[in-house]
Design a protein around this nucleic acid. Structure first.
Length: 674
DNA sequence: GTGCTCCCTG
DNA sequence: CAGGGAGCAC
C-alpha cells in the first residue's frame, strides 16, 4: 500500500502548485504539500501576521520604495540575476527535485517575491535615473538615444560641455547612491542580526508546542513591528531572508566587509542551512502544522489520503475475491454482499438517469439504482462539509445531488489538499463510499439533518437523530435491530438488505426517490397485485415524492416482476408438459410450498424470507402455471400472442394489498406477527 | 400525445 | 433491474 507520502510523490504537479512553495527551501519534501499558498506562511509573514498588519506593512514598504535609491544603482548584474531567477522559478516545472532540493540553491530562490520587489524598485530607480539624465542633458533633448547624432554634430560644442556636465553629474549621483547603498547594506546586516536573534535563535531552542507558537507569534510581531517602524529596516528585513541564506557571502566579499554579520548570526544561518534543521529556520510547514489551522488542514489531508488508500484496498479485495471465485461472486452477489460494490455499476446508470431526469432531479432525488450512492449522498455531503467546514452548520439542508462532480471530494476548491491524479485507479463510487462513510461516520458527533432523511422511512431511524458512528450491527442498540426486523428487514448476514442496509440507507433516505427498501416493499406488494395502477402505487408509497421518473420506475419494477413471474411459469409449464406420466404432470402443475417453483418465486420476491407468502399468491401462481401448461399442451403457444390471454387472466386476479403496505417503510408481516 | 405493457438487450 | 423500442388504448 502506498503511504500517503508516497502518493504525494506520485503527483509532483500538485506538490508545489504555487511558485511560493516551489521555491521554498525545505528538506522535508512532504511538508510543502501541506502549505497553503499564502504570504502568511512565510517565516517572516507567519500565520499570526495577517492582512490586517502584514499586508498593510508590506504596502507601506512598497509605497516607500523610493526612499532607498542606494539599493538601485551599481547593481545591474544583480538585477539581471534577479530577473533570471524569476524567470527560472516561473518557468520551472514543479518537481520533487525542486521542492526538497538543495538548500543552498533553493534558498537563493526562496524569497522570489522579495526579489521581485527588489527588482521593481531597482527598475523604477533606473528609470528615474534616466529621467534625471535627460533633465541634466535636456539641451540635447534627445538623451542617450541620440548621443551618436550629437557627437556627429560638431557645431554644437556647447552641448558637449553639457554632456560632460551630465556625465559628471551622473558620476556624482552614482557615488552618492553608492554611499547610500553601503549605508543601507550596513543597516540591512544589522537588521539581519536582530531578526535572527529574535526569530531564528528562539526557533532553534524550541521544540514545538503551543507555548512556542505564542512565542513565535510574539517574535513575528516583533519582526513585523520592525518592518513598520523603520523604513530602512523594513527594506533590509524585506531582503534579509534571501541575503542571509544565499547572498551573505557574496555581499561580504563584495563589500569587503565580512565582519558585519557577527559570529552568532552566522551560526544561526548555518544552522538554518543545515539539513534536518532547515525547518527550524524556515518552519513554514511545521510551524503551520503546529498551529490550529494547520493541524486541521493536516488532519484533513491525512483523512483524504487514508480514505483513498482504504478505498483502493477495498476495491482490490473485492476484485481479487471476484477473480478467485467468479462463480460465487457475480456482480450481483458482490453488490449484495458488500454493499459497497453496489456502486460499481451505478455510475453509468446515474449518468443516463441524470440526463433523462435532469429536470426532475432538481427537485427529485435519483431513483433506486442510484440510491446506494444517493442515500449516502446526504451523509456524504455532510461529511464533506464537515471535512471542509468543520464548523459548518449541520442543520443546513443538503444540496441537491449534482450529477457526478459532487462525488468528487471538493479538492479543487481546497488547494491545500492534493488532488487525485486522473489515472487514479480507485473507482469513484468506492472512493465515494469509503471517503464519506469511513470518515463521515467516524465523526461520531455528526448530527444528522432530519430533513435529509426519509421522514417515515424505517421508523427506528426516527428515534435516533444522530447517526451511529459505525454501522456495525453489534454496536447497535438491540431495539434498533428489532425495529429493523419488524420492518421486514433481516438483521445480520452477508446481504446488505438487512438492518445494516436499512441503516445506511436510512441515513440518506429522502422523501424523493426510491430506496432498496421501496424495492423490497414493491416485491412484497407483487404477492397481492401484479398489475397495480400508478395511483395505487402512489397510495402505497406515501413516503415517496412522486414525479414522472419515480412513477415510471415503480411501474417498471412491476413490469420486471411480471416478466420474471411469467418466465418462471412458462418454464415450469413446459417442463411439466415434457413429463411423460400424467401423475408427474399433475404434480408439476401444482404449486406447493415445497416446490421448486415456489422456492424460486419466494427467493425472488421475498429474498430475506422474512415475509409470509400469501396463500392467494400461491393460488394465482398455480393458476398461471396451469394456464401456461394448458396453452402449451394445446399448442396455442404457436400463436405469437398466445401469452396475452394468460396475462389478461392473471391481471384479473389481483387482490387488495393489505393496509400495512400503506404505511411508510417496509410492511410488517402481520401474518407472522399473529 | 400520453400512459401502459410487452419484448429485447445488457 | 434498467433502457429503449414497439404496440395498443384512451
Amino acid at each position: 500500500m502506498d503511504t500517503p507520502s508516497d502518493r504525494f510523490h506520485q503527483q509532483p504537479s500538485q506538490m508545489c502548485p504555487f511558485e511560493l512553495y516551489r521555491n521554498l527551501p525545505d528538506s522535508n519534501p512532504t511538508s510543502h504539500r501541506f502549505s497553503p499558498g499564502s504570504l502568511a506562511s512565510h517565516p517572516l509573514f507567519g500565520p499570526h501576521m495577517h492582512l490586517s498588519n502584514a499586508s498593510q506593512r508590506w504596502g507601506n514598504f512598497r509605497q516607500r520604495q523610493g526612499l532607498f535609491p542606494g539599493l538601485l544603482v551599481d547593481d545591474d548584474v544583480g538585477e539581471e540575476d534577479v530577473f533570471a531567477k524569476r524567470e527560472f522559478s516561473v518557468g520551472a516545472t514543479p518537481s520533487p527535485q525542486c521542492c526538497p532540493g538543495d538548500r543552498g540553491q533553493d534558498s537563493a530562490r526562496e524569497p522570489e517575491d522579495w526579489n521581485q520587489n527588489f527588482a521593481r524598485v531597482k527598475r523604477l530607480r533606473i528609470n528615474s535615473a534616466l529621467r534625471n539624465e535627460e533633465e541634466v542633458g535636456r539641451k540635447g533633448k534627445k538623451g542617450r538615444k541620440n548621443g551618436a547624432s550629437v557627437k556627429i554634430d560638431e557645431r554644437k560644442g556647447a552641448e558637449q560641455g553639457n554632456r560632460r556636465e551630465s556625465r559628471e553629474g551622473r558620476k556624482r549621483q552614482r557615488q552618492e547612491l553608492k554611499l547610500q547603498l553601503e549605508e543601507t547594506r550596513g543597516k540591512l546586516l544589522e537588521l539581519q542580526r536582530k531578526v535572527w536573534r529574535v526569530y531564528g535563535g528562539q526557533r532553534i531552542e524550541k521544540k514545538g508546542g503551543e507555548e512556542e507558537q505564542e512565542d513565535e507569534a510574539l517574535n513575528l510581531d516583533e519582526v513585523a513591528d520592525m518592518f513598520s517602524n523603520d523604513d530602512e529596516a523594513l527594506i533590509s528585513a524585506g531582503f534579509s531572508p534571501q541575503r542571509c541564506s544565499s547572498k551573505k557571502n557574496n555581499e561580504s566579499n563584495q563589500n569587503g566587509n565580512p565582519g558585519i554579520i557577527p559570529e552568532e548570526t552566522s551560526m544561526d544561518l548555518d544552522l538554518e542551512l543545515n539539513g534536518d534543521q532547515v525547518w527550524l529556520g524556515c518552519s513554514l510547514v511545521r510551524g503551520e502544522w503546529e498551529s490550529t489551522e494547520g493541524g486541521q488542514k493536516f488532519a484533513q489531508a491525512l483523512k483524504q489520503e487514508l480514505a483513498s488508500v482504504v478505498a483502493q484496498v477495498i476495491d482490490r479485495v473485492v476484485r481479487l475475491y471476484a477473480e478467485t471465485d467468479p462463480s460465487s461472486v457475480t456482480p450481483a452477489t458482490v453488490s449484495m454482499e458488500t454493499g459497497v460494490a453496489i456502486d460499481l455499476n451505478s455510475e453509468r446508470r446515474q449518468r443516463s438517469d441524470t440526463v433523462a431526469c435532469v429536470v426532475e432531479q432538481v427537485e427529485a432525488l435519483p431513483l433506486i439504482t442510484k440510491s446506494p450512492q444517493d442515500k449516502r449522498a446526504p451523509i456524504a455531503q455532510s461529511g464533506q462539509k464537515d471535512l471542509l467546514l468543520p464548523q459548518s452548520n449541520p442543520s443546513l439542508a443538503p444540496l441537491p445531488q449534482p450529477p457526478l462532480s459532487a462525488l468528487f471530494p471538493p479538492r479543487s476548491k481546497d488547494h491545500f489538499l492534493p488532488s487525485y491524479s486522473p489515472d487514479n485507479s480507485v473507482p469513484l463510487p468506492l472512493l465515494h463510499y469509503t471517503m464519506q462513510n469511513l470518515f463521515a461516520r467516524s465523526l461520531s458527533s455528526l448530527p444528522l439533518n432530519k430533513d435529509c432523511l426519509s421522514e417515515p422511512f424505517m421508523d427506528f431511524r426516527s428515534h435516533n437523530s444522530v447517526f451511529p458512528p459505525l454501522p456495525l450491527l453489534g454496536q447497535l442498540d438491540p431495539s434498533l435491530l428489532d425495529r429493523a426486523r419488524d420492518g421486514g428487514m433481516r438483521g445480520g448476514g452477508a446481504t446488505v438488505d438487512g438492518a445494516d442496509a436499512a441503516l445506511y440507507l436510512a441515513a440518506g433516505s429522502s422523501q424523493e426517490g426510491l430506496s432498496p427498501c421501496h424495492l423490497k416493499k414493491a416485491k412484497l406488494m407483487f404477492f397481492y397485485s401484479r398489475y397495480p395502477s400508478s395511483s395505487t402505487l402512489k397510495t402505497f408509497f406515501p413516503d415517496v415524492k412522486f414525479n414522472r421518473c419515480v412513477t415510471s420506475q415503480l411501474i417498471k419494477w412491476f413490469s420486471n416482476f411480471r416478466e420474471f413471474f411469467y418466465i418462471q411459469m412458462e418454464r415450469f409449464a413446459r417442463q411439466a408438459a415434457r413429463e411423460g406420466l400424467a401423475s408427474a404432470r399433475e404434480r408439476a402443475v401444482r404449486l406447493g410450498r415445497d416446490s421448486e417453483l415456489y422456492r424460486i418465486l419466494n427467493m425472488h420476491y421475498n429474498k430475506s424470507n422474512d415475509y409470509q407468502v400469501p396463500e392467494r399468491f400461491v393460488e394465482v401462481s398455480e393458476i398461471a402455471l396451469r394456464e401456461f401448461y394448458s396453452a402449451i399442451q394445446s399448442g396455442r403457444d404457436a400463436d405469437p400472442c398466445w401469452k396475452k390471454a394468460i396475462y389478461k387472466i392473471i391481471s384479473k386476479l389481483d387482490s387488495p394489498v393489505p393496509d400495512s403496505f400503506r404505511l411508510p417503510g417496509c410492511p410488517t408481516d402481520t401474518y407472522r406477527m399473529g
